[in-house]
């Protein structure tokens, strides 16, 4: 990627991506435990919206990962 040619710059970029992905994964973990709790309490209406939200978070993660592997990898 032009403008990010040195390994040092790329490492910083990668670190930023790792931090964002980590935050998104933690949100997914919270979502999973909250959904399980609601499901066990008999509240089924929340299950599919939560699955959709988790899928959206995965989409973001996938996009970042794709950018990382395609653009930043050496």
């Amino acid at each position: 990627m032009k403008g990010l040619s040195t390994l040092h710059q790329r490492n910083s970029m990668v670190l930023a991506i790792v931090c964002i992905v980590l935050c998104l994964v933690v949100m997914q973990l919270w979502l999973l435990t909250a959904t399980m709790e609601a499901f066990l309490g008999g509240e089924d209406f929340i299950v599919w919206p939560a699955a959709a939200a988790s899928l959206a978070l995965f989409g973001l993660n996938f996009g970042l990962l794709h950018f990382y592997l395609r653009t930043l990898s050496c």
């Binding site: 994964v25 999973l32 959904t35 699955a51 978070l57 995965f58 993660n61």
Partner: peptide, 18 residues
């Protein structure tokens, strides 16, 4: 990061399973 991506996918699988 790749491992985090797979973890993220596993969480989606968990949601679908519920």
């Amino acid at each position: 990061t790749k491992m985090l991506g797979l973890t993220s996918l596993a969480f989606v699988a968990g949601q679908v399973w519920i």
